[in-house]
Amino acid sequence: MNILFWHVHGSWSTAFVRGPHRYLVPVTPDRGPYGLGRARTYPWPDTVIEVPPEELATADVDVVVLQRPEELELATEWLGRRPGRDLPAIYVEHNTPKGDVPNTRHPMADRDDMVLVHVTHFNELFWDNGGTRTTVVEHGVVPPAAGYTGDLERFAVVTNEPVRRGRVTGTDLMPRFAEVAPLDVYGMGVDALPMALGPIGRRVTAYEDLAQGPMHERIARRRAYLHLCRWTSLGLSLIEAMTIGVPVIALGATEAARAIPDGAGVVSTRVDDLVAAARWLVAEPAAARELGERGRRVALDRYGLARFLDDWDRLLKEEMCGSR
């Protein structure tokens, strides 16, 4: 099967392209947001093919996987065919709704020409999908090569643009944990974070755009992983940390409670509870290892790559058969 999709989310795409298909990703000379091409910091197989927009009109495409509203118009223009009408289309929603929650209308609401795939049950519940068919394909991750040691009394955080996004990513909560142990923050747009946090920022180290493998190796040495997001979809970095065996401390918002069941990590909406857990894990490395191991087993079972690819393969085949 030849699947056209845009390179938008690195970790999700890295799992998605491990399936048994051929994946066509648009590439433009500037490698901008709608022509990023193949990943450079994630390992992708040779079945991922870069295709310039001008070649898509004659490309063999079986199904289009959309991830942003504007991709529908781009696909129609570049393919000369209408996704959902002339060939099957699937829209993947990665994000929590914004605006008038829980009444936020999804851009693909009330369509009869595609299926809307949410990556978490929370997202499917909170978006107003109208009459559009929906399903949930939960995340899957490529198992990281790193293994937990936790030998450094430091916390790991992975987030993008924490200064700009502020309360969304729980940036305002970071100083409380930095008082317990230093924070190492990884992601895009994190360079300005230490200065933005004021005096406590001296206990925060930022790592901008570190490749996935080296980042996993660093996270594996930190005592615990912090997931402080108030209103974001389930971060794949959280699942990756669990898969490594890093014990996780998470704000009890959006999908976190389902992703981290009792005994597999610490989840609460009371920040004092999370700070207390952070102190506990710093003081008790053996307990940290035990908690991380329970979380690792949960992550491998629920978010394993084989289950993710099987779910996607089944959905793709259903859509192909339904279009005939």
Rank of each mutant, 00 (worst) to 15 (best):
P33I: 10
R38V: 11
T41I: 12
L72H: 02
E50C: 12
H21E: 13
H7N: 14
P53K: 11
R31C: 11
V63F: 02
V8F: 10
R68N: 03
T47E: 04
E50F: 08
G32T: 14
L66S: 02
D60W: 05
R68P: 00
L74F: 06
P26H: 09
D62S: 08
S11D: 04
H9G: 06
G19R: 04
S11M: 05
A57F: 09
E73W: 08
P29R: 13
H7L: 05
A57M: 04
P52S: 13
V27S: 12
P53R: 07
A57L: 07
W6G: 00
E71I: 00
R68I: 01
I49C: 07
H21N: 14
S13P: 00
V64K: 00
W6F: 13
E73T: 06
D46S: 14
E55F: 03
E77S: 06
W78C: 01
V25Y: 04
Y34F: 15
V51L: 11
I49N: 04
Y23S: 08
E77W: 02
P52D: 10
R31W: 08
W78E: 02
L66A: 08
R40C: 12
P20C: 15
P53D: 10
E70W: 05
V48S: 02
G80R: 03
G80Q: 06
R31L: 15
W44E: 08
G35P: 06
P26K: 10
V17Q: 01
W78D: 00
Y34R: 15
F5C: 14
T47C: 09
W6Y: 15
E77I: 01
P20W: 15
P45R: 13
P20R: 15
L72R: 01
V17S: 02
L79V: 05
L74P: 00
S13D: 03
V63R: 02
V27R: 09
D30N: 13
V25S: 11
R40I: 15
E55Q: 09
V64T: 01
T28Y: 04
E70G: 01
A39R: 07
E50V: 11
E77A: 08
R18S: 04
V61G: 02
V61T: 04
W6I: 06
T14V: 01
L36P: 00
E73N: 07
V48W: 00
P33A: 12
A59V: 09
L24A: 07
L56D: 03
G80W: 05
L24D: 08
R38Q: 13
V48I: 10
E70R: 06
V17I: 12
T58G: 06
T58W: 07
V27A: 14
R18D: 03
A57N: 07
G32L: 14
R31S: 09
D60Y: 04
G19A: 10
R68G: 01
P53H: 14
H21T: 12
S13Y: 02
